[in-house]
Design a protein around this nucleic acid. Sequence first.
DNA 1: GCCGTTTTCGGCCCGACTGTTTTCAGTCG
Length: 571
Amino acid sequence: MDHHDIARVLGEIAALLELQGENPFRVRAYRTAARTLSAYGGDLREARAAGALPELRGLGPATLEMVEELLDTGTCRMLEDLRDQVPPGLVDMLRIAGLGVAKVRQIHNSLQVDSLGELEVAARDGRLASLPRFGWKTAEKILKGIQFLRQADGALLVHHARAAAAELVGVLEALPEVVAVHRAGSLRRGTELVRDLDLVVVARDAPASLAERLREGRVAEFTQASETAITLRLTGGTVVDLFPCTPDRLGFVLLRATGSEPHLQQLAARAAARGLRWTAEGLVRSDRPLAAPTEDAVYAALGLPWIPPELREGRGEVDAAAAGRLPCLVERRDLRGFLHCHSAYSDGADTIAVWADAARAEGYDYLGLTDHSPATAFTGGLAAEAIPRQHAEIDAANARGSGARVLKGVEADILEDGTLDYAPAVRRQFEFVIASVHTRFGMDAEQLTARVLRAMDDPSMTVLGHPTGRLLLSRDPFPLDLDRVFACAADRGIAIEINADPQRLDLDWRVLRQAVTAGVTIAIGADAHGVANMDHVDLGVAIARKGWLTADHILNTRSADEFLAFARRRR
DNA sequence: GCCGTTTTCGGCCCGACTGTTTTCAGTCG
């Protein structure tokens, strides 16, 4: 169990307590503890050995004891008891937009509904709409929510998938017959959601013994082995496909396990055109399998250079490779600026000095600090009166000189009418402005597009933040007319963000080529609320790569002075 | 349940929208 798993358990406990009608502040305490753990950057076992756990804000005697119990046993009594007392379907219902604890309890108590299936029936036959303070709109919204949950079923956010894969790779690498483990599938291609984990296991021994080992080692609650793959289901439901192979076949097996299906189909077609056969065993020329120790060797046999996994979506990469026109994709080390982060001046966890030092340690030249503006009240947005104090602190951090250079930015709300938060004179105190929509998502496409376009008229705006507002697995993107927004952004010299928060990853990679073709500059923003989440930038870089972007397309590959010049040109 | 101070217990994030009802509870960001 790592800190993410433990955070999830505490979060579930909070939900279960809430459903039982427990004191809301006690519930909140568990949520706070969960948040603390999920943002924790280090190794919990090491921290515990060093006696550092009690130092963590939000962990007290009770939650600390629970963390230790989970670290030692992988389970916790309180959770088991609560699960016995509360139907599990009620926790699922809480994930439906528009349903909170009060309504779920009302539904459960008056209709005896305790699963999503029963809820769906009640929403269809009118019982739900007849409850006090419910109506047909609520019933419809709930049906939509159930559908959304079903669609999302089994999908993992990419940072959760990465964490699960890392743990499993560690277990596999420790087995004596395992030579190496390679990540494959959508995880390797850098997609925003991962349905199942694919790992290629280079092993000396036959696959059967590997399956046996995993069964013994209680790695999974379910194991099934076939000729070419071992399928596991981890506790929690995540499905893992392991592809065992010997070193001489690694290239082909890895390529095949990475996909995507359209990419492989195009490769197979190319093989056929060159007199080769693409079989489950490998590439075959006149009944002789070709050697395939590396992916390079397989691509070379097809007359192609190696294609980066992020591009393997069947969207023109095979033709581009054949023509020698693959893009030179942006890399994390090309980024000189770390953009979009929140300090303790709004809802961030860390001070400005801590941010500056962390950014320097990660190799950035500058840090674009962007606390929330006051309109997003729940974040404790930066009040106009507090700006001089914040800027003095930034000046002090910059004068100290040990950290990355801190730029004075802000994430200003795009208000309902399309104006930006703060008076214009106040906004001019900042060196750059990320403007984002945080409220009123219910507008139709025309109203929303007009709202964003109006915001882009504002000369202080530098970057449009998380442009479509989506929250993966929980909220659809809002219906923005991207063609018009791209055209306007290109015309005004406003950059559009790839927000690297794993819940957002917004813009979607599928529209990035359209954006840069329209002339838009892209900014990769971390949207980090603590230095522990700095590595989310990697996810944003993967999305940029999936969109075929090079370093030249990205605003924060430029120097701090060039970045500021980009912002100033608009004023 | 946690925190911070008041050192032993009181306070803990809040404003606005939605769908309902016809004045407001519940949810959300």
